[in-house]
Amino acid sequence: MLTVSKSPLRVSFFGGGTDYPDYFKQFPGAVLGTAIDKFIYTIMLPMSGASQTNYRITYRKVEEVDRISDIQHNVIRSVLTEYKYNDPMNIAIISDLPGNSGLGSSSSFTVGFIKLISHLQGRSITKLDLMRAAVHIEADVLQENVGIQDQTHSAFGGLNLYRFQGNDFSIQPIRMTTDSRDALNASLCLVYTGIERSASATVEEQVKKTREKKVHKELTHLYDLCEHGVQVLEGNDPDRMLTELGRLLDDGWQTKRSLSSAISTPRIDEIYDTAKSLGAFGGKLCGAGGGGFMLFLAPKHAQQKMLETFGQKHFVKIATEDSGAAIVRDFA
């Protein structure tokens, strides 16, 4: 029986950086963002008894091994070990968009794979426990430099304000009118910089500065922008919502650029300035920085210009996604 899980990628509007334990263990943290309609798909087929190996894993490379301990893919090896699942299997990972691009793909895969293994074990895992399990694998088992927004967005789905402080965690769904939601979805788009990078490595300088409280003022401002963003999104005037949200995104991007020298590059600055000159309301770089995708709010006429300027391979239309990680279906 073939089993498929899908887990959404995400974009955050405000608060990125305050979701790292080095920050929210001392100060209130928050992230305002949304899961998007682009996914990581994890496909599992039981390995045939006639197969020469117990595990075949296909992603950027192909692994064929007999023992879980020999699996090179860190998340797959760690999850199978943690959950004591050792049935021979053929696993394939497919993504709508490139990895290492600031959309939380690594954590989205972790969430989706835990969802899949839990399903195969006959367990219906809650969204909260799914998020916590993914954070545990990445932060505790693999000792990676990760925040907790990526796992949260992918597990829960939807457009939400997440608050983190100490061991406390809360979710506030954004209450939008249909007209405002539709206007937001019509305006959301991505531009790919063409640069892939490791989030864990890129964020190293920022985490160091966070521990030393050298960027406390900037992170506090990004935290405060979350509350302003909620007020804007929950307004009743869609046009005003877009222009105000764009202005706040621009404010947040200028602040984020100051967190680390690794966040922006001349190429990233050029893309941002070009998009603004073409009529985008505002935008920001997604993820830790250094490359990946840039998020923009832009009216339809500006999006057409952006498509023509950046090219079809670099321009991606997106919308919000409400469901979070799920088992698509079992195929007999």
Rank of each mutant, 00 (worst) to 15 (best):
K208H: 14
M241I: 15
G157Y: 05
V75R: 01
T177M: 14
D182C: 04
K284F: 02
G16V: 03
D251T: 15
S118P: 00
R181Y: 10
Y192K: 06
Y20A: 05
D22I: 07
I36W: 01
Q172W: 00
L249R: 04
K127R: 15
N236T: 14
F39H: 06
L295D: 02
L225S: 05
L128C: 01
G229T: 09
E64V: 03
D330Y: 01
G17C: 09
S258H: 06
T210I: 15
K208A: 13
T53A: 08
L184F: 05
D251L: 12
G324R: 08
H119Y: 14
Q151P: 10
T18E: 04
I268C: 12
E218Q: 14
S7P: 07
M176T: 12
A325Q: 07
I263Y: 02
T34S: 15
F164P: 02
V75N: 11
S200D: 10
A183M: 08
R56W: 02
L242V: 00
A92F: 00
M89H: 00
V4T: 12
Q121K: 15
H119I: 03
G147H: 01
L245R: 01
S108W: 01
G311R: 12
I148A: 05
S101N: 09
V203M: 10
L278H: 10
A302T: 09
D19G: 00
Q165D: 00
K84Q: 13
L116N: 09
K313A: 14
G311T: 07
L297M: 06
S51R: 13
I271T: 01
K127M: 05
I43Q: 02
T255R: 03
